[in-house]
Write a protein that binds this DNA or RNA. Structure first.
Lengths: 258, 258
DNA sequence: CGGGGTGTTGAGTCCACTCAACCCTGGTGG
DNA sequence: CCACCAGGGTTGAGTGGACTCAACACCCCG
């Protein structure tokens, strides 16, 4: 209802406006940077309903949080630009990075059940999100089958991603974890039009370690080892993958499978 | 559409019937054994819509699978009685237990995104599930706000549970994992009317280990250690919790926290 | 009686952790 | 300008917890 309170810590909040593509579609299908999130709305809603999905945008500067553990769920947040780190905290106080979210992915889906966020989302670079008031969104879902289906798939995809992480955390050694992480990140970057072999990460070794259930030293050592194996060039946060098949072999993918 | 094919491996398939409470409501609020799943339907749908959520039931004998990795999504499956082990498999071939599902919980939500199951559900005892054709269900959701909201919460809860598992797998030692598992299972059993301190598990040490990212020997050793600490009595698969506060202390919950 | 499935316990190994030193870079201030 | 510092990253040495391998106990069932 009133989003204002939640946004005190954000740089600025735009007045409500349509969440659809900016006038400059620089890359194809970059609608609102939502990677398919807005598309079903655009393609399948009648005009009045279409216009009804208004939302604000918010800019979140590097290091600022979009929402924190315990905040009431008011909205979900498709990422329009930038990237976020989502981390949770245990009773004991140690916290762990749940995942990294890129442009086109949706933040806040974990809060639907409890009506309050169970994690904290922090911008890893200056970023921009759409603010989709959840109650409003749910009502619209009921009016549009395709929108509803799309939302269900988003939630379900979230579950699938988390399960892959569980597999990683439960049964892989350090090298497999790091390689798996790099390969999956690479795939997500490709889908956003970046190079699959040449990328800059926004997160620290500690963030990566926390996400993979490893200590930062182990991440560093593993990256060095991959470099020695001539599979990867590492220069700080800049990565260049030299041997994709080689990496895939390390995580047990015969690469020509299926 | 045609559920028949998927059910060849199940003991028997009932003719379609209403998924609502049997005539003998032995325990309060045991509607269909769905622990709240059917409740919103019952309470918030108009009569014709209510009657429209027909579904079949299926009996799955101990050791049989309800669905397998790769099966097409046709339905989701609220558990009416019994319990299931859901496991996934990595490219490498080793598989891991994603979770254990009890009466009232819903199987199959991970498949919505890809339209095909990414895991295998195996009955740990003779069980019975409702078969809710997903397309049909989605249409009904659109007609009923409360049903839709309830479904969203179910999906979201699944995400929350998975995230707790990620915390466990990423940052706890063997003892903390086992204790955490026991406490959370205890809580779920209580919610179903069982004793919180006295329960029989249906799964093997290997299943537990696979779920917790441990080897079966480690699970066994840890249970023995908890017994030596006078926190737990273990007799095969029968457990009796002796000291709940003590256990909570082990996982870092000061028990009077907040 | 033997045999398979399940669980417990012991001995030794190894991988990731801890602790620590050091490097590099960018920023700040004398 | 350089000195200094803080944060992030790398690398080394040693430790410990979970793993591997193995033996054995137990129970159900033939």
């Amino acid at each position: 209802m009133d989003n204002r309170r939640d946004w005190a810590h954000c740089s600025r909040v735009h007045a409500p406006l349509l969440s659809l593509p900016d006038a400059n579609p620089s890359s194809p299908r970059q609608n609102c940077g939502l990677g398919g999130y807005c598309t079903p709305i655009e393609s399948s809603l009648a005009r009045p309903e279409h216009d009804a999905l208004v939302c604000s945008h918010a800019h979140v500067k590097r290091g600022e949080t979009l929402y924190r553990l315990g905040d009431r769920l008011s909205s979900i947040y498709p990422i329009k630009a930038g990237c976020f780190r989502v981390s949770a905290i245990t009773e004991r106080g140690d916290h762990q990075v749940i995942g990294f979210y890129l442009r086109g992915e949706i933040l806040g889906l974990d809060a639907v059940a409890t009506q309050s966020h169970t994690s904290t989302a922090t911008a890893l670079e200056d970023s921009e999100v759409c603010i989709v008031p959840f109650e409003h969104f749910e009502r619209l879902c009921a009016k549009s089958g395709p929108l509803q289906q799309h939302f269900h798939k988003m939630m379900s995809r979230e579950i699938s991603v988390d399960r892959n992480m569980m597999l990683l955390l439960g049964s892989m050694n350090a090298e497999e974890r790091v390689v798996s992480f790099l390969l999956s990140l690479s795939a997500r970057l490709v889908a956003r039009g970046y190079s699959p072999v040449d990328f800059n990460l926004r997160m620290s070794r500690e963030d990566i370690g926390s996400h993979l259930g490893l200590k930062l030293e182990t991440v560093s050592r593993t990256l060095s080892s991959l470099h020695e194996q001539r599979l990867l060039d590492v220069d700080g946060r800049h990565f260049r993958v030299l041997d994709v098949p080689g990496l895939k072999r390390l995580v047990g993918e015969p690469e020509s499978a299926r």
